[in-house]
Every structure is written in C-alpha cells, then in structure tokens.
Design a protein around this nucleic acid. Sequence first.
DNA 1: AATGAATGAGACTTCATTCAT
DNA 2: AATGAATGAAGTCTCATTCAT
Lengths: 210, 210, 210, 210
Amino acid sequence: MRSENKAGGQDRSFIETARRAQIVGSAIDVIAEVGYAQASLARIAEHAGISKGVISYHFDSKDELVQQIVDDAMTAGDAAVRPLVEAQTTAADMLRVYIEASVEFYRTHQRHMLALLDIWTNLRTQDGRQRLGVRDNENEMGDVEQILRFGQATGEFGEFSTRVMAVTVKQAVDGVLLLMAAYDDLDFDVYARELAGLFDRATRKEDRWR
Amino acid sequence: MRSENKAGGQDRSFIETARRAQIVGSAIDVIAEVGYAQASLARIAEHAGISKGVISYHFDSKDELVQQIVDDAMTAGDAAVRPLVEAQTTAADMLRVYIEASVEFYRTHQRHMLALLDIWTNLRTQDGRQRLGVRDNENEMGDVEQILRFGQATGEFGEFSTRVMAVTVKQAVDGVLLLMAAYDDLDFDVYARELAGLFDRATRKEDRWR
Amino acid sequence: MRSENKAGGQDRSFIETARRAQIVGSAIDVIAEVGYAQASLARIAEHAGISKGVISYHFDSKDELVQQIVDDAMTAGDAAVRPLVEAQTTAADMLRVYIEASVEFYRTHQRHMLALLDIWTNLRTQDGRQRLGVRDNENEMGDVEQILRFGQATGEFGEFSTRVMAVTVKQAVDGVLLLMAAYDDLDFDVYARELAGLFDRATRKEDRWR
Amino acid sequence: MRSENKAGGQDRSFIETARRAQIVGSAIDVIAEVGYAQASLARIAEHAGISKGVISYHFDSKDELVQQIVDDAMTAGDAAVRPLVEAQTTAADMLRVYIEASVEFYRTHQRHMLALLDIWTNLRTQDGRQRLGVRDNENEMGDVEQILRFGQATGEFGEFSTRVMAVTVKQAVDGVLLLMAAYDDLDFDVYARELAGLFDRATRKEDRWR
DNA sequence: AATGAATGAGACTTCATTCAT
DNA sequence: AATGAATGAAGTCTCATTCAT
C-alpha cells in the first residue's frame, strides 16, 4: 500500500504512520473549513496542535501532503463503494448501488470530500496545468463506464455515450456537496434515491414498453 | 448596466471601460491557464502588457476584479441562453434548449467558464466560508427549477425532486469543462445532444406508455 | 510675500493663487483629521473636489505644499499675535498678551495648528533629520525670548534661563492642542488665563515683596 | 509582567525575549533617527542585521511592535521616576523631584523618548483619530495632578487649575527633546534646575509674603 | 523525532509623480 | 489650466521551506 511505505521502499514506523495520519486529518479539516488557498501549513499545524516543522519533517512538501489526502480519500471511497457494486448482478442494480453507496460515503466523509473537491480544482503542476483531471479519475470514471457498457451489452441499457453518461453520474454525485454546503438539513437518502431514479430512467432501454 | 457604471453613479469613460475589459480579459486568460491561486496581479498585468499598478488604478481591489469576471460571465451566459429558452413553448423543449444553449455557450466561452469554475471554488469570505454557493446561483438554478416545475404542472414531466434535478442539470453542463480539459477533440454537439437526451428521458412522464 | 510669488520671481495669477489657497486649505483639513502620514495627495484632492494632478500642477512636490501650510500658519499666527504684543508697554503685559493671543489664535485656527503640529513632527529632510526644529522656530521663540530678556533688563522679571523659559512657554501654549483633542468642551479662556497666571508667577521678580 | 508574556499566557522563551528586545531596540533607533513615517520594517530589519521576515515572525504586526515600544518606554519611565517621587514628603519636593527625575530619564533615554514622541503623534486608529492622547497619558498626567492637588490640600500650593498645570509640566519636560535635537551641548542639569524653579514659583502660595 | 527560529520570495496595495491629451 | 491614466518603488504581511538544536 502506498500510504504505508516510503518512496525508498522501507516500511514506515508506527509512530510515523500515526503522525502522518494525524496531519492528513488536520489538513482535511482545515481545507474543508477555510478552503485550499487559505490552508497554510501553519494553520494545519495549529489545528493539529503541533509545530509547523513537523509537517515538513514527515512530508517532503506540501504537495506530497495534499497528494496523500487525495490518495486516502479515493482509496477509502473505492473501498466503500466497489464491494457493494460488485455484489450486484444486473447493470441497473450496479448503477443504483454505485450512486447510493457514493452518496452515503459522501455523507459519512463530508469533510474529506469537501477538501478533495477543493484540492481537485487547485492542484496544479508547476507549469500551471491542472494536476488532477478526468484522466486521473479514470479509475473511478472507468468503473462507472464499465457498468454502463455492461448494461448496454446485456440490453438493459439503451444507446447513449457511456463517457458522457459517466461524467454526468460523477458530477451528479458531486452535486451533493454543493447542496450540503448550502442547506444544513439536506436529506442524503432522498438525494440518493432521486439520483438513482434519475439515472435509471436516463439509462434504461425505453422501448421495452413500446 | 451594472458593469458600465461606477459605484458613485457616474458613467465610465470609454478608455476606462476598455481598460477594464482588457484587464478582465487578461485575468480570465490567466486564471483559466494557471488557476486562481496562481493568478497574481503581477501575472495578470504581465499578460496584459501593462504595469501592475494599472490594475489597482482601475479596480479597487483584486476582489473587485474577480467579482467583475463573475458578473460578466454570468450576465453573458444569461443573455446567451435565456432568450432561446423563452422562445420555447413546451417544458421539454425549454429544458433541451437550455442544455444545448448552455453547452454551446461553454464552447464559445471556454476560458471564461474555466475561470469562473475556478473562482467559484476559491472565492471565500474572510471567515473562510465559500462566498459563492448554490444560493448565489439561485437565479440560474431557479430558472431551471422553474422549467422543471412548469413541466410537472403541464404533465409533461413525471415526479422527481426539482431541486435535485436542477442541481444535476447544472452539474452535468459543468461536466463539459472537465472533458474539455482532458480531451482536445471534444465534440460539443455530441455532448449537448447526449445530455439533452439524457435529461429528456430522466424527466418525462414514464407511464404515458403504460 | 513669499506665498504670492513664484520662485522665478513672477507674480502668480489670481486663479493660481486661489487654487493654491484652496489646496492648502484642503490639505490642512485632511492632515488635521487623519494625520500627516495618512494625508495622501489623493485624499487631499478628493477633499478639495479636484483631480490629483492639479496638486502636482500647482506645487512642485508634496513637500512644497506642506511647506506652504507651515508658512501660512506661522505668518497668520505672527500677524494675529505680534501687533497685540507690541501694543503693550511692560514685559509682563507683553508675555500675558502673547499667551492670551496665542491661545485665542489656536482656538480660531484649531485645524491649522493641529496640522502644523503634525507636520512639525513629520517633516524631514532626505537624510532623515527633522526639517523643522527649535531653530526654525527661532523667529517665534526669539520673540518670546526678547520679551523675557526685556523684562529681566527692566527688572520686572527675575533670574532664569530665557531659553528654557521660552521653550516652556511655547510648549505650554501647544498644550492646548492636546487638551483640545481630548476634551470637546475645553474652555480656552480659562486655559489662557491659567497659563498667563502661571507664567506671571514663574517670571516675575519674587523679592519685590520681601 | 505584560511585556514578557504572550497573549496566550505562555512565557516567552529566552531567545524570543532577546530577539524582541533587539528588534524593539532597533526600531527605537530607527524611529529616533529618521522618524516614524520613514521607519519601515525593512529599515528596522537592516539596522538590526536580520531579515525582514524575522520581525513578522516575532511580532504579529507593525502595530504590535510599536505598541511594545510605547509600553516599554512608559514602564521604564515610570519605574525611574515614581520611587524617587514617593520618597518625598512635601508636595513641592515631589514636584521638583518629578521634574528632575524625568529630565534625567530623558537624558539617559534620549532615543527612546524621541521615538516615543514621534509615535505619539503618528499612531492613529483606523478612522484617523489619534490613538494616543492625553487620556492614555492619564496615568502619568494623573500622577502629576495628584501631586498638585496634594499640594493645594496641604496649603503648599496656591490656587490654579491642576489640569492645566499638569499638562504644562508634562509639556515642559517634553520640551527638553526639542532643545536636545537642536543643541548638542544641552546641559540637562541646568534645564532640570530651571524647570524645577519655574514650577516652584508657578505653584507655590504667593501670599505667604504678603 | 520534534521544534522554534529564520529566510526570502512573492502576495496585494498605496503612493507621489509624470505625461499625453 | 486641468485631467485621467499610468508608472514603479516601496510598504506590510504571508508562506513554504530550511536548519541548528
């Protein structure tokens, strides 16, 4: 696992692992609360109750810390969603479960996902190009697309661009973050059900009834 | 028109208007290219081929410049989309036209919208809370929701949460930016058509055929 | 008169004189209100309802404008006080009248004197040394000292350092500005009378009664 | 002691205390030499032989640094003068010792007091009003006034406004700074003795001899 | 393993001054 | 005679990073 080994290959000590986790947690909190741009190492260290230098000691750079957040969040998300999806047999069920499980994960990991969304927009390479794009999302995006293609192959789903549909599904799930930020009393279950229904109608073969 | 008058009420001179437009244009370019966080006044000035002080001369603060970008982009988007939508008679047509016109606007204003998306994420109030949220988007969001409710009232559309559907429509259209950044050869027309079809199926009353 | 002629020797036009007076007046207001450090040309121009460039047009530099304020205030002060003093015959009366007339002038020219005090502290030569010091005040200081020496010569006054006494008189009169700033309801007449009494006792020959 | 503890309540480390003292010292030197307005952090840092950032590291803002100077100077002045005054029994002696000790303090702390005087004039609140005024001086001013009232109560002193007299005493002592700046060879002892005599005559009951 | 201290680059902003119109 | 526009220097402050302890 990437997060438990150094680049050199040696295992991290227990303490090191714990410290990194603590720092990552604080970084998530701070980014979620004040935004990526305002999330200075000083603020993160203060939130963690440690000295600024500790972060530099455990992470080569701020970029590495941020990358760790991204890795952690995506790994956790994958772990939460994939097994449930793979337990399904029909493409329609897979899609529905993917959406429901994703929204549920967003609910239980609100701060993680708020931070991730912010990082996503802001993380750039030195030449200014966005470091994270659809391509880095290919794993997840690919998973959804696979479900969609599977459904088209089995005849459950109608004709549509699997790429466009996949992007839309991903964006739709992210939409929960926007509403979350705006309305404290957002009902995640309703949101998940609505979304599931929406994409069920959008994907399934229509002429079954014709 | 808001963008052509000062707070004091006086009209701006022609030169002032032109300079502001030039600066706003440069700012959009720079933000779209290197991201909001890296878009310093120095970089924007350099891109515009002017001195840093000129920006401060024409804009009270960086915030005002950024707000001008937001205002301009949203005004232009509204102007491009609304008339076309209002020319429609059925809700289904309105929704389809809204999506198609929006995607078309995104195609002709790629840099504007990339910049806007970046600003959206990053603009915060002093206490860290996001300055722009769903609520600031209410105008546009509200427009979509109105279409959706109208469709439900006329019986064209089925039952669904208009709020969730509206957010999803908005997010889906924004999705074009993600694909755009990843694939140079993106076919906007296909994207628009796919999206229109997707939401047509997702919204229309299903049991007409039952 | 210095203030009505250019360095070159030509007379100023009527308009030029009026403009300079207007600008000087605004500068006094602004300096008195927000302090010398915050009194930018922009603020002064705004207060005068003119463009920033006008100031630069009529004054070679900000320093010249400030020097004009100093000259004006000191000239006016001298004109208000000197005739009254010179109308007295005894040194004691001269000193009393000097103090009373000075305080009265401070009352009618509060803003001028507040500004002057501020400028006094802040005006420096390029190498950092204070441009205005006791030596520049020699005129006024000298006047007071002359009165004091006159009194000692006539035997009205006792023995004391005329220099120390003169500085103290000047400082005492300036003290009215401090109280003015702190207490809105300051009674200038009482202040003047107290001061006059104070220095009467401090200067007069004591052993007349012995 | 206020100056040795952080706002949070923790003690400062030895190094921190030393650095702050060094920076305060440099700031005093620079302000005394070139004036408050020209005393930029860059100049102060250069004078201290450190990097500009060090100042920001040890002081939250320039204002905090300046406030520290004020606190230090006033605390030191109080410590130098008060014990000597309190050792006296008669009001006349108290006043004389206050003046003599103050002038002596000004002699040994010339740079401090020059800086303090400059800061006093220039420190303003955001709305432009002077931050330090007679009221902030109440402590010291109050001390002098107490002596004066005490003397009136015991019958040592005659009738006069204690407030006006107190302001004048304070201003008279400050006058030493003006002469100091103008004449290198100023004899502080003479100045102190002259001032003491001056205020002795100005305060004491006159009609003892009548 | 951790920290406090220091750095230097770069951020935004203010300002006196110059200049073409 | 006046103005609006532009400049470039200098101001304070923030920040990621480095380093001695």
